[in-house]
Design a protein around this nucleic acid. Structure first.
Length: 302
DNA sequence: TGATGGAATCAACGGTAATC
DNA sequence: GATTACCGTTGATTCCATCA
């Protein structure tokens, strides 16, 4: 750490200064948090909040989350460390932050989702952070072509109802009810327009080395695909798809090989509705690199 | 088993440009 | 000229992996 010097201290806008004016990066940070719920500084850069991490840490976030009482953003530091150094801080909107975003978007506060209970996913950090990386990449792909449009996007960590027994039990907004009381909760549900056709997709991200677990998870999508449950969910009449994203190319290969080895899968309708990719490829360009289990092009994003 | 390097984040500082 | 926003650099911190 650098030692204090006798030089004049660097000046920043006082945290006591009223929040009358938000800078553009601060506005972008609030909108990004409303979109993705949980963001690290690196993810804020990916989401276009600013180009430099130190700028976000030193100039953007302090005025949003280091105030005495009227913070718009809450930061959470995890007590544990990851395999490659410490885990980054995660930022979320506060209720006041959600109110500011609702005012910026000219919408009702109920339309702005923010985590009421704060950040509670230290054990799930890698999975959720990677999933949010995918969401940011998806939005970047949408924004890259004006003909594309995201019509709806739901995340598994968004809940409705109350966290207590009662008339409205808490449930994920991604829950898809199936016959005989069964249900499935994909990591994400998206409905978008590629510019040439509309697609309804369920997104699953795999970051565990346990291939069997990923295959079992994907196996749970067979019935919803057969029933076109994802398209029906969004009121769409074409076949729904499943997007399987693996944390590494090696895991993706193992998952595809295990899936294609399932009896009857290769000749099923669901085979053509399940596409595979890697996190690295998706972050580089969400719309490319998708293949079916036999490595043939999936053709979903054309 | 201890030393060392790699990887990643964070904090502090300085430079530049825009605005008043 | 002072203030502020934005960006880049540097060093500290922490853990894990590797090697002698």
């Amino acid at each position: 750490m650098t030692q204090p010097t006798d030089k004049k201290p660097r000046r920043h806008r006082s945290l006591e200064h009223p929040l009358d004016v938000l800078t553009l990066p601060q506005q972008r940070a609030l909108l990004a948090l409303a979109r993705y719920r949980y963001l690290t500084v690196a993810q804020m850069i990916a989401a276009g909040v600013a180009k430099n991490d130190s700028h976000i840490r030193a100039d953007v976030l302090p005025r949003l989350c280091d105030r005495a009482s009227d913070n718009l953003v809450k930061s959470h530091e995890f007590p544990r460390f990851g395999a490659k150094g410490r885990l980054p801080r995660v930022h979320t909107l506060t209720k006041l932050g959600a109110e500011v975003v609702a005012d910026m978007e000219r919408c009702d506060l109920s339309e702005i989702v923010y985590p009421v209970g704060g950040v509670q996913y230290a054990n799930d950090f890698d999975h959720r952070a990677a999933y949010i990386d995918c969401c940011i990449a998806f939005d970047a792909w949408i924004a890259a072509d004006e003909r594309r449009d995201c019509l709806a996007f739901r995340h598994h960590f968004d809940k409705t109802g109350a966290n207590r027994s009662g008339m409205q039990r808490m449930r994920s907004v991604c829950r898809i009810d199936l016959p005989r009381g069964r249900f499935i909760v994909p990591d994400g549900l998206a409905f978008f327009d590629t510019g040439t056709k509309k697609r309804a997709v369920a997104i699953e991200f795999h970051n565990f080395p346990d291939t069997g677990r990923a295959v079992k998870q994907l196996g749970g999508h067979m019935e919803p695909l057969e029933l076109d449950a994802y398209s029906t969910f969004f009121g769409h009449n074409a076949a729904g798809r499943v997007l399987s994203i693996s944390s590494s190319p090696e895991l993706a290969v193992r998952v595809m090989d295990r899936m294609i080895a399932l009896p009857g899968f290769r000749d099923s309708r669901e085979f053509r509705l399940m596409a595979f990719n890697t996190l690295e490829s998706v972050k580089a360009d969400f719309g490319s690199g998708w293949v079916l289990a036999d490595r043939s092009p999936a053709g979903i994003f054309e």
